[in-house]
Design a protein around this nucleic acid. Structure first.
Length: 524
RNA sequence: GGAGCGUUGGUCAAGGGGUUAAGACACCUCCCUUUCACGGAGGAAUCACGGGUUCGAUUCCCGUACGCUCUACCA
């Protein structure tokens, strides 16, 4: 932490921001960026801001902004300032700040750092085509080409004025200087250096008057007093443009401190993880369910799949970070205590869904029945099993089965039979070795259990074994049948615990039901 | 093509000039348990390659290779 303070303007109050564009569900990587922002900010007693980057009206998606709030709330990563909560630096939606950006763009033109460009999309495409060579497959609008294009650098001042007055669409482009060394210190990568000749004349202000990301991010970060900027590594190549903008507009000494996070990669092959990969490989990439209002496409999220937010956050935290010890399971409190930017990796990590499941399993094991209760009730209710008024029983059942659950949805199978007698039994598991002797044993068992006073697991097991010995049967070969009778299948906690929990009446009735089924099947 | 960033087992990774190169997930074997889990014991990796520096490099330096990102009036 000391290091970072030395590298940055430690005198200012730490302010960070997450700036998503509302174009769809929130990606894993986005949530991780929020997490790192949040942890860093809280550690420095700073303020964490949510800013909506909706400058591209063509990509705006209804509901996406609300989805972002909901996701952050689910993860426990609520911002201090946002379009929803407001704050002293609003508005926090870039579309509502449109008027602000134009002034800065004009300022840059006036200072000779930017210019008007009138090239149509067709002309731009023609340029890219005409100048494309094998050595340069993607020509850029830069110092070598800008004097061949239609802009205020190549036409007269009067002509420029006339075009603008006449309503000709135009953009404002930055005029990247030649051969200037642009460098900054990245919190994660250290010194990073670029030559300004490598950066092209990026569009700053679009024809519709909206800023591009490049202009908006610099202007807003400055206006909102942001001190640290965490963003994905994909932004690294455009950082020289941002440095230039800071230099021209607000002074390099006031520039935010950057931290470029490593990317989260596809589990197979290479490349960054996309929603498509999740669909293809069968795991979610979004935090919560998302339905695209335009296409109706539905995407499953971690929350609805049965993940605990603690597990989701934990899994994200250690994707690209660790504390240097063997610890892997971290609570939010522990993360707040142990997280450090210095220990964020540089290398992108392939996403591993198996490991994500493991984290959820660990968190379920670690969570108290109390904490799990509402989740379990929710899923049982959805499965049509009513447990109202049975909280004490459910609590004890949760403790019995939680070691067997990977997802919260697993509780339905693992606890459902406690409340609802199985209707279909895995008879195949017992039929092969079924005989009259065993049948008699269970008939005796029913009698015994009907008379048992204290229906405790110990008592039930004892009388079960005594009866088995009397029938000259091994308890082992009777245990599985009893389980199938009570549970329906080969799963669940210790069989006498189950019997004890569901009580004498249910136990006896389930055995009777199973005996009937066995008889019916054996006859065939 | 260019620029930037990166490279320890199948994956996530600790470590860092001299080590038996941690640990986790997955996998395999076994124990526990006459269900399934949980738990426990064990198995399997010479750190991309080539030079250099050094008594000694996986660790430092330089190259090479490979991978990724960017190269839009998208963010």
């Amino acid at each position: 932490m000391d290091n970072i303070d030395k590298m940055t303007n430690s005198s200012k109050k730490v302010r960070t921001r997450f700036a998503p564009s509302p174009t769809g569900g929130l990606h894993l990587g986005g949530v991780r960026t929020v997490l790192f922002n949040y942890l860093f900010t809280r550690q420095h007693n700073g303020e964490f801001i949510l800013r909506i980057e909706d400058t591209d009206r063509t990509r705006f998606v209804e509901g996406a902004e609300q989805y972002i709030y909901d996701t952050l709330a689910w993860c426990g990563l609520n911002p201090d300032e946002s379009p929803a909560t407001g704050g002293p630096y609003g508005p926090y939606r870039q579309s509502e700040r449109k008027a602000i950006y134009g002034q800065y763009a004009e300022q840059l033109v006036k200072d000779g750092h930017a210019y008007y460009a009138f090239d149509t999309p067709e002309e731009l495409e023609a340029m890219r085509n005409d100048y494309k060579t094998e050595a340069n497959p993607s020509p850029r609008y830069d110092s070598t080409l800008r004097d061949k294009m239609r802009n205020s650098l190549t036409i007269s001042e009067q002509e420029t004025k006339d075009l603008i007055a006449g309503g000709t669409p135009y953009v404002i482009r930055i005029k990247a200087p030649e051969n200037e060394t642009l460098r900054f210190t990245d919190l994660i990568r250290g010194e990073v250096e670029f030559n300004s000749s490598e950066t092209d004349d990026k569009v700053l202000l679009k024809a519709d008057g909206m800023p591009t990301y490049h202009l908006a991010v610099v202007v807003d970060d400055h206006l909102m007093q942001i001190t640290h900027s965490f963003r994905g590594e994909e932004w690294l190549p455009s950082s020289p443009v941002h440095i230039l903008l800071w230099k021209y507009l607000f002074g390099l000494e006031n520039m935010v401190t950057w931290a470029h996070l490593p990317l989260i990669m596809k589990p197979d092959g290479n490349g960054k993880l996309s929603k498509r990969d999740g669909d293809r490989l069968g795991f979610p990439v979004f935090a919560m369910n998302w339905t695209d209002p335009r296409t109706g496409d539905f995407t499953k999220g971690y929350r609805e799949l049965g993940f605990l937010p603690e597990a989701f956050v934990n899994m994200l935290a250690v994707l690209g970070w660790n504390d240097g010890t063997e610890q892997e399971v971290f609570s939010m409190e522990e993360l707040l205590e142990k997280f450090s930017v210095e220990r964020i990796h540089k290398k992108g990590a392939k996403f591993n869904y198996e490991k994500a499941l493991w984290f959820n399993k660990e968190w379920i094991k670690k969570s108290s029945a109390d904490k799990l209760l509402p989740h379990v009730q929710y899923y049982l209710h959805n499965a049509g099993i009513d447990t109202t008024g049975n909280n004490d029983t459910l609590l004890s059942i949760i403790d019995q089965v939680k070691d067997r659950c990977t997802l919260l949805t697993d509780f339905v199978e693992q606890t459902g039979f406690f409340f609802k007698a199985p209707t279909t039994l895995d008879l195949d598991a017992i039929l092969k070795k079924w005989n009259e002797q065993k049948n008699s044993f269970f008939v005796e068992l029913i009698r015994s259990y009907e008379l048992t006073q204290d229906f405790t697991p110990e008592n039930l097991e004892n009388s079960f074994k005594e009866l088995a010995a009397a029938s000259q049967l091994k308890p082992g070969e009777l245990m599985l049948p009893l389980r199938i009778m009570l549970v329906g299948g080969k799963f669940g906690p210790h069989v006498f615990d189950i019997a004890s929990t569901i009580g004498a009446k249910q136990t006896v009735s389930r055995i009777k039901f199973a005996l009937g089924q066995l008889e019916a099947n054996n006859g065939n």
